[in-house]
Design a protein around this nucleic acid. Structure first.
Lengths: 206, 206
DNA sequence: GAAAAATCTTGACACTGACAAAATTGGCGC
DNA sequence: GCGCCAATTTTGTCAGTGTCAAGATTTTTC
C-alpha cells in the first residue's frame, strides 16, 4: 500500500496532473464564490496541495484565471457547434443555432462567461488565449459567411453584419446573466429558444 | 490662518463632505487600477483620511462601489437624455439618440460601466441603486414607447422590442470596451455614430 | 546509481478589508 | 458662556490574501 487516495488524484508528493486539477478546482471556486472572492490559496486547498504549489504551473492568479477562461472559450466553441449540428444545414437555421449556443453557454456558465469577457481578459493576453477566443468568434463569422457569402464578408457591410450578430447575442447573454431579463430567464431555456431566434434574426434583419 | 488646505477638502478633523470625497476618490482609483486592484485603503488615502474612516459612510467596500455605480447610472441617464436633446423630436431620431448616449457613456467610462453591470451589482442591491438603474432603463423604454405606442409596449412583442434594443446597445458597449471591435473603436466616437445608428435600428428592424 | 531538474512544502513579507477602542470634534440644552 | 452626547475620525489589531525565497522530496537523465 502507499496511501494513494485523495480528493482529486492519487496524492503522491508529485501530483502528476496538478495543472488539470487546479483548473478544475478553480472552476468550482469561481462558480461558488465568483470572481470577487476567488482565492488562490483556497483553490490550492481544494486541489489538495499547499498554497504555493500553483506557482510552478501558473505565474500568478491572473494566469490561472486566464487558463480557465481559455478553456471556457474552447467549450463555448464546442457548445455553438453542438447547436449547429442539431440544426440541419439550412444556412439561416445554422446561423440562429450559433447564437443559441452562445447564449446557452453563457446561461450555463455565468461566472465563467463573465470572466472570459471581464477586465482580466482584455489587455495583453497570451497568444493561446487569443487563439481560443478567435476560434469562438470564427464560428459566428463562418455562419454569417455561409448565409451572406464569403465575398460579402470582406466589405464594410459584411463586418457590420458580423458585429451586429455578435452584439446581439452578447447583449442577450449579459443581460440574462445579470438578471435584467427576469420575464425571460424565469422560463426554461428551451422556452427561450424562439425568443433568442427572433433576437438573433433581428441583427441581420432576417 | 488655520491650516485649511489639502487634497480634496478643507481638512479639519471632521471632513464634512467625506462621503462625496470618497466617491470621487473611488472613481479615480477605479479608472486607474480597475475593479481588480481597487483598494479601499488606497482610496481613503486619496481622500486624505485614515484607512478606517470610510466605515462610517459605507458599510464595506462593496457598499462604496455600489454607491459609485449608482452615481454611474445617474450619469448614464443624463448622457442619454443629453443625446436625445440634440436629436430634435423625431421619434426615430430620439430612439437612436438614446442608444448613442448609452454607448457613449460606456466608451467614456469603461471601468465604471463594467462595475455597473458586474457581479457586484446583480444580487441584493439596495433600493436606491435599483431605482437609479431603472431610471436609465426607462429612458430607453420611453423612447421605444414614443416610437411604437404605449399600448404596444404592454404586449409580448413590445417587450421584445425593448429587450432587443437594450441587448444591442449593451452588446455594442461591452464589445467596444473589451477591444473586440478594433476596426470600429480605433476611430473617433463621432465617426462611429452612423454605425451605432445602423445597429440600433436593426434591433427594431427599422 | 549519482547528478540534475522538476515539483511540492514550509516560512516569510507586505498588503488587504474589517473590527474594536480611544481620540477629536460639532451640536445641543442650559 | 458650559457641559454633555452623538457623530466622526484615528490608531491598533486580526485573519486572510498573493507572491517570493529557501528547503524538502520526487522524477528524470545520463
Amino acid at each position: 500500500m502507499s496511501g494513494r487516495e485523495n480528493n482529486a488524484a492519487t496524492r503522491r508528493y508529485h501530483h502528476g496532473e496538478l495543472r488539470e486539477a487546479l483548473l478544475a478546482a478553480a472552476e468550482m471556486e469561481l462558480s461558488e464564490k465568483g470572481e470577487d472572492g476567488f482565492s488562490l490559496r483556497s483553490t490550492a486547498k481544494r486541489a489538495g496541495v499547499s498554497h504555493a504549489a500553483p506557482a510552478h504551473h501558473f505565474r500568478d492568479v491572473t494566469a490561472l484565471l486566464l487558463g480557465l477562461a481559455q478553456r471556457g472559450f474552447e467549450r463555448l466553441t464546442a457548445t455553438m457547434k453542438e447547436e449547429q449540428a442539431e440544426a440541419g444545414d439550412d444556412p439561416e437555421a445554422l446561423y440562429v443555432a450559433s447564437g443559441v449556443g452562445y447564449i446557452r453557454f453563457a446561461a450555463e456558465n455565468p461566472a465563467l462567461f463573465q470572466l472570459m469577457f471581464g477586465p482580466r481578459s482584455q489587455h495583453g493576453v497570451p497568444t493561446e488565449f487569443a487563439k481560443a477566443a478567435d476560434a469562438s468568434f470564427s464560428v459566428l463569422v463562418n455562419a454569417v459567411a455561409r448565409l451572406r457569402g464569403a465575398e460579402f464578408l470582406k466589405t464594410e457591410d459584411g463586418w457590420r453584419d458580423v458585429a451586429a450578430a455578435w452584439m446581439m447575442v452578447h447583449g442577450y447573454a449579459y443581460l440574462a446573466i445579470g438578471g435584467k431579463l427576469g420575464w425571460l430567464t424565469d422560463q426554461s431555456f428551451d422556452r427561450q429558444r424562439p425568443v433568442i431566434a427572433d433576437m438573433v434574426r433581428r441583427a441581420l434583419r432576417l
